[in-house]
Simulated scan of single mutants.
Amino acid sequence: MKIISSPKISLILIGSIIVCSCYPMVSAQLVEQIAAPDTNPQGSSYGEWASKWWQWVYSIPQDENPLYDETGAKCAVKQVGSVWFLVGTFGGSITRECTIPSNTSLFFPLLNTECSIAGGDGKTEEELKTCAKANIDRAISTDLTIDGKKMENLADYRAQSQLYNITLPANNIMGVSPQTTSSIAEGYWIFINPLSAGKHEIKFGGQAGDLTVASNMNFATQSIYNLIVK
């Protein structure tokens, strides 16, 4: 979720894929399943969904937060409406199992960040935008596989939000006192239209930094969701 942008710890969301031009028909099928980045799926742009994703994830205390869930048991926490959010990891690979209602869309980041006043990332909207852009500019790969089919052209799915507010409860994952603060989100996001009933596997993630050198600024993670739609 947040790429490391300063001495403080940040988060990121990621997965794994090798883009291969030998699957042109597969990519075409996935494009039909995934909402185009310049559209407004279910009435909101990708940037607006990004702010909603962060508002959701930051509203959940750490002990109930899906980001700390190693099995998928908490994937339904505070999920409402016809769009559910998926999360990644704080680094490394994880596999989760999750049951979602039929006719439910999914929204999640392949690699993303947010910059907020409470997080010490800036004091003005322009400073927060600059921070978010600089963090995502460090991305070196983004990956997505759905039911064994690899998605191409993921660079098209980069989006930045407008300024929005997040409300942080007690024991929040930012590790600050409860408060409401302003934030800007940016990243590579995916909106998947409702999947058919049955079992599905989604892998997503990416990498940031320069993996040819040792640095605590480097980050790589993969999330695998085994979904049951019913």
Score class of each variant (00 low, 15 high):
Cys98Gln: 00
Thr99Arg: 02
Ile100His: 00
Pro101Gly: 07
Ser102Gln: 12
Ser102Val: 05
Asn103Asp: 15
Asn103Pro: 01
Leu106Thr: 00
Phe107Ala: 01
Phe107Thr: 00
Phe107Trp: 02
Pro109Ser: 04
Pro109Gln: 05
Pro109Asp: 04
Leu111Asp: 02
Leu111Cys: 10
Leu111Asn: 08
Leu111Arg: 02
Asn112Glu: 03
Glu114His: 07
Glu114Trp: 04
Ser116Ile: 04
Ser116Lys: 10
Ala118Met: 04
Gly120Cys: 10
Gly120Ser: 08
Gly122Asn: 03
Lys123Val: 06
Lys123Gly: 13
Lys123Glu: 14
Glu126Thr: 06
Glu127His: 03
Glu127Gln: 09
Leu128Ser: 01
Lys129Pro: 04
Thr130Trp: 05
Thr130Asn: 14
Cys131Asp: 00
Ala132Trp: 13
Ala132His: 10
Lys133Val: 13
Ala134Thr: 03
Ala134Tyr: 04
Arg138Ser: 12
Arg138Met: 11
Ala139Asn: 04
Ala139Gln: 12
Ala139Ser: 11
Thr142His: 06
Ile146His: 11
Gly148Lys: 10
Lys150Met: 13
Glu152Val: 01
Ala155Gln: 05
Asp156Arg: 13
Asp156Ser: 14
Asp156Val: 03
Tyr157Gly: 04
Arg158Gln: 11
Ser161Cys: 10
Leu163Phe: 09
Leu163His: 06
Asn165Ser: 15
Ala170Thr: 10
